[in-house]
Nucleic acid binder design. Structure first.
Lengths: 231, 231
DNA sequence: CGTTAGGTTGAAAAGCATCAACCCGTGTGG
DNA sequence: CCACACGGGTTGATGCTTTTCAACCTAACG
């Protein structure tokens, strides 16, 4: 049982390469947790006592604005880590986390993580590298929000998630459409319309299956200026 | 001379509290550099050989998209650091940097920074904390881009930069309006119009001077839903 | 005193949200 | 087994928001 979870731990980029002794030490305080879809993992502004490694499923990080709007900040999946951002600083969470699907997590006390980082130089530097790459991903997101239109963001998202299956290039949406929309900073209705518009640009929609028929055309949508009419 | 620059170094949150010995070590390899407004500091995708501490002036971090659009990712000012994000990982810069005003920087070889971080545990942990807070700021930015309209982002920006001067609450824009616009993810024309619209919501514009006449009204703009008509 | 960069203004169009209706597959209780 | 409700998704009509393009203004400067 414990072996099973520790495999999840070391499969996570953040903890892979950790000395067996350290792994064992973490596993002594690690607790497996399950959440149903929609269940709250932790709240914005709550104390960051625990960090999590995702063993399976999807977790959404979000913020709620004063007027009740919700902003989806990031989505995380298997072997990614959640809640470290504030846990490492012994602060309150700067976002809320919610299960976007059934998911299993490994909860780790932040105190133990900090202690380990203080002792294990190698681990500390991995934490830093990990944080830096998270930062870079946020740069990507800001760039796309500031320079791309909704249709371009959708096209880019589809291309990122397109996989070749039996000779066809198919996009399996990693989570429900309403979450995809929130992730891209648009409303579900707009996503629906945008997908319909992309049928003229290399996309095929056959009852809930999305297929990239012409990759070049789709990439063209991303490249082209909004000014030029791809209408 | 060297003393002068080292004062700038230790005034930076990232390096304050560094052992005098380490400061001296860094100052041996540090080089002061000057840039005129608009000059390039480093290019996106160039090797991150140097990191910078800002001694004076403003630096903008930006990205250029394939189709030639530019996204302003962040603005940095005195005693903030620039270029560490990639320098610490020995990678290429994930954004370009340009002087937004005349500015003086202190350039530090990334190799030396990495060596110092490897030796000085305290410094390494400060680097991590610094990166985590940068990450949190990016969360803020994404949140505001995804949930607030242009007028709300402008109002929030004005309130953040409002200072009491001689009994009045005045906003001195930290940099030119076109940069403010880019920073908020809108076009200069839109910023101009939004400022005009905010005259009905607690803002006064007297020939290039911006005054917050009614703070509550402005905060109301941020709180209110787009649905409700504050027209 | 003309030039220029930064900013403003206007009219028109594009982009996206909103609200409401509708569709459809799934599950549930009578 | 069927009617029904429900969640997720789509579609249409409409309106607000923001961009675009162009003209114009104005303070700074050679």
């Amino acid at each position: 049982m414990t072996i099973h979870f520790s495999e999840g731990l070391i499969a996570s980029p953040m903890f892979s390469g950790l000395a067996p002794k350290s792994v064992e030490r973490l596993m002594r305080v690690a607790r497996p947790v399950r959440f149903r879809r929609g269940e709250n993992i932790f709240l914005h502004q709550s104390r960051a006592d625990c960090c999590y490694v995702i063993l399976s499923g999807w977790v959404k990080l979000y913020r709620v604005t004063p007027n009740g709007n919700e902003a989806l900040v990031r989505m995380h999946s298997q072997f990614e880590t959640v809640g470290f951002c504030d846990g490492l600083r012994d602060q309150v969470h700067s976002y809320g986390a919610e299960a976007a699907s059934i998911c299993r997590l490994l909860s780790l006390p932040t105190a133990e993580i900090r202690a380990l980082a203080a002792e294990d130089q190698e681990f500390a530097s991995r934490l830093l590298a990990h944080t830096l790459s998270a930062l870079e991903q946020m740069f990507d997101q800001v760039e796309s929000l500031k320079t791309q239109t909704a249709i371009q963001r959708v096209a880019a998202f589809l291309l990122r998630h397109a996989r070749r299956v039996e000779g066809r290039t198919v996009v399996e949406l990693p989570f429900e459409k309403s979450l995809v929309a929130a992730h891209l900073g648009i409303k579900p209705e707009s996503l629906s319309r945008v997908l319909a518009r992309l049928k003229a640009h290399g996309l095929a929609l056959n009852q809930s299956e999305i297929e990239v028929v012409n990759r070049d055309l789709l990439e063209g949508v991303i490249r082209s200026d909004p000014a030029d009419a791809w209408a």
